[in-house]
Write a protein that binds this DNA or RNA. Structure first.
Length: 414
DNA sequence: ACTCCTTTGAAGCTC
DNA sequence: GAGCTTCAAAGGAGT
């Protein structure tokens, strides 16, 4: 893993490398020079399918690291250059739009002043992916012009419009999906705030952007995401908890994406289209290898983006810490496990577990009353036998419950 | 419905 | 400070 050495000047404390990038003209020359045919694309696609199969063997990427690029990689790299950044003129200023990250449409002076590579190919092959990747087909007219899709109309830079294309899930869930984020405004500078994400003071009480679209880092309770179902009952909750559940949940602020995550988000659609793969795990393996195959200059761009993401995130949520979400997953799991030990069980379920007749059999292990023998619906069983391995049931006839009901393991029947 | 898988990097935690 | 753990995205597969 090519760890970039500490830049030293990172006010966020990230180890971002500041690299002197090549001249833009030089890059563009490269793009033209490396144009290739449709047939090349077809070859590439088939080779990538193979790549995905190979990728299942761990360590393959590591083994290949440092080797001379194969012809396929050569084609692939130059294809990326072909699909490279779009330049659009806005108000006399050229902006570099990074597809998948229209929010990263940066004025070139900014790019030059912030050590961003002026022209790095990041453009997913939308022609081939738009119809296959679910992120792209969301809310997006298929005939939509890509150049218009990536850029904002003049005068709208810095605005979020729901009608704009968004690709995939936004980097911060809560924004319309599609992953395309608002552009940085042309007034953006390395030290300024980011109009894409206005200062936290501009956010409403619920973290809403003035446009009505919540900030992407804020995950509304309704959003389908992990932390949401953390907050949902995974089992029948007591009334108190159920009541608590009705109260509005605090939106979850997620971690800013790191460089690799930004890269993945952008390149995923492309890989899916090229490899006809859908499994994220396999795709991520490919992306991981491609990430390693990137030059340091190419990677540096993503490190820079990630640094800005963190910077912006910190500006928007000064009190937020990664600690806020730290351990939630594990904590939930633990709580769930704990609950399963204290949570009242069902006599029916309990008997089913032990292969007893639901209508007539008393549950040997926990002595739950069968429904047909109880005057009213049986109360939940507090015994924990149904979560333990089934005991070996003896053939000894079960004793009637007068004594059994006082047994502490079946408190619910008292 | 929920978890796992799989990747890298940032940040938190533990010792 | 080193080393480990967790979370961020994604979506199919498995439970």
């Amino acid at each position: 893993m090519p760890q970039l050495s500490s830049g030293g000047g990172d006010d966020m404390g990230a180890n971002d490398e500041m690299i002197a990038f090549k001249d833009e003209g030089e890059q563009e020359e490269k793009i033209q020079e490396n144009a290739f045919t449709e047939r090349d694309l077809a070859d590439l696609k088939s080779s990538l399918v193979n790549e995905s199969e190979i990728s299942q063997s761990p360590g393959a990427a590591v083994a290949r690291r440092g080797q001379q690029p194969e012809p396929r990689c050569y084609v692939e790299k130059h294809r990326e250059h072909l699909n490279g950044v779009t330049k659009q003129q806005d108000g006399g200023m050229y902006k570099t739009s990074y597809p998948g990250y229209p929010f990263l449409m940066l004025p070139d002076p900014y790019l030059q002043s912030s050590s961003m590579p002026p022209s790095v190919s990041l453009r997913p092959n939308l022609n081939s992916t738009a119809n296959t990747h679910k992120h792209i087909r969301v809310h997006r007219p298929q005939s939509q012009d890509i150049s218009g899709f990536y850029s904002l109309p003049p005068g709208s830079v810095g605005q979020i419009s729901p009608s704009m294309g968004w690709q995939g899930q936004p980097v911060y869930p809560g924004l319309p999906s599609c992953g395309f984020r608002q552009t940085y405004s042309s007034s953006l500078s390395a030290s300024s705030s980011y109009p894409r994400f206005p200062h936290s003071l501009m956010l409403g009480p619920s973290g809403m952007h003035p446009t009505g679209i919540p900030h992407p880092a804020i995950v509304p309770p309704s959003a389908k995401q992990e932390h949401d179902h953390y907050d949902r009952g995974m089992y029948a909750k007591p009334q108190g908890e159920a009541k608590r559940e009705k109260e509005p949940k605090k939106p979850v602020i997620k971690k800013p994406l790191n460089a690799f995550m930004l890269y993945m988000k952008e390149m995923r659609a492309k890989v899916i289209a090229e490899c006809t793969l859908k499994e994220s795990a396999a795709i991520n393996q490919i992306l991981g290898r491609r990430w390693h195959a990137l030059t340091r200059d190419e990677q540096a761009k993503y490190y820079e983006l990630a640094r800005k993401e963190r910077q912006l995130h910190m500006q928007l949520y000064p009190s937020w810490s990664a600690r806020d979400n730290y351990g939630k997953k594990k904590r939930r799991k633990r709580e769930k496990q704990q609950d399963s030990n204290t949570d009242p069980g069902s006599p029916k379920k309990c008997r089913a577990r032990f292969g007893l007749n639901q209508q007539t059999d008393w549950c040997g292990p926990c002595r739950c009353v069968p429904e047909t023998l109880s005057a009213s619906p049986p109360p939940p069983c507090l015994c924990r036998f149904d979560r333990l391995p089934p005991p070996v049931l003896s053939s000894r006839p079960f004793i009637r419950p007068s004594v059994r009901l006082s047994d502490p393991v079946c408190m619910s029947l008292r």
